[in-house]
Design a protein around this nucleic acid. Sequence first.
DNA 1: AATCTACCCAACCGCAGCGGG
DNA 2: GCCCGCTGCGGTTGGGTAGAT
Length: 305
Amino acid sequence: MGRSPCCEKQHTNKGAWSKEEDDRLIKYIKDNGEGCWRSLPKAAGLARCGKSCRLRWINYLRPDLKRGNFTPDEDELIINLHTSVGNKWSLIAQKLPGRTDNEIKNYWNTHIKRKLQSCGIDPSTHRPFKRMADTVAGASTSSTTTASPAATATPLPSVPAGNENSSSSSISRNKIKSEFPLFSTTTSPSLKQKFVVTDSGNGGGVEDSVSNTSSGVTVEEIAYPPPPPQINLELSLAPPSSSQQLQNGCLCRQTLGLQNGGNHPCRCNNTIPIVGVSNVASSSAATTGAGYCYFKYFGAGILKF
DNA sequence: AATCTACCCAACCGCAGCGGG
DNA sequence: GCCCGCTGCGGTTGGGTAGAT
């Protein structure tokens, strides 16, 4: 059962490539081009599996590879693309000249993923960890739980401008900003969803716990990411995203029946949803309807208004 | 200085998709 | 339509190394 091995394992080297092997592979491909990987090792005089040769060439030896650290722009693009296509590393790599799928995958797993998690964002869904969102939703609204952020969205009390500068809020915000310095330029509208980021002071970690002001822990809200951004990937993406579903469920102030939505354009041509509402907001704050927008997170960025 | 731990990244493995026969 | 071989992709592993103890 099963497919025959791609090469004779007992006669192939494994593990790290030597300089000589690299040179042989480079020379062969320069002379003959990338062709049949299965026959390449023999033709090039390499005791390697064809797959191994291909991988070595694509991930390491290709002359057009860009080595070195990822730039903030690349970070942003990766996150954007990941929001759209998920773990399709090869697709993502196509949009990052000089980067390989393997490199991007490693970078995602070792850097970006961790950063997102530290901010309470599930890297696989680009949404706040479910437990957090659900918990707070239950704590501050009476809406029934559904799977859709749009469906659960409920007009929320707004935070007065003064609260924005509370020290505890600053901790969370600064953390996010320092972790994601690139998050500053995006303009897409976002869905609103409650989200808690707390800083328990236990070393900077972001705890996924619900808390209150008396405990001295920050509760802050960040927008749910909206549906995948509209990125031209030159391919067909997924079934209709929730962006379409949102047309009737837009959370902009007009839709929510709140006044003074501001001038932020919304996808529905109304105004930007209110975001950044905290469940620590006092009842007086709730009556202001100020619509304070702290951050927007939509996979690619967090915006402060 | 030695040991331990965490992290990074190159490489491997297995599977899916595609095309030719 | 089915089978087979090949390529490409994504998940995972393991060696190397830097930093901490």
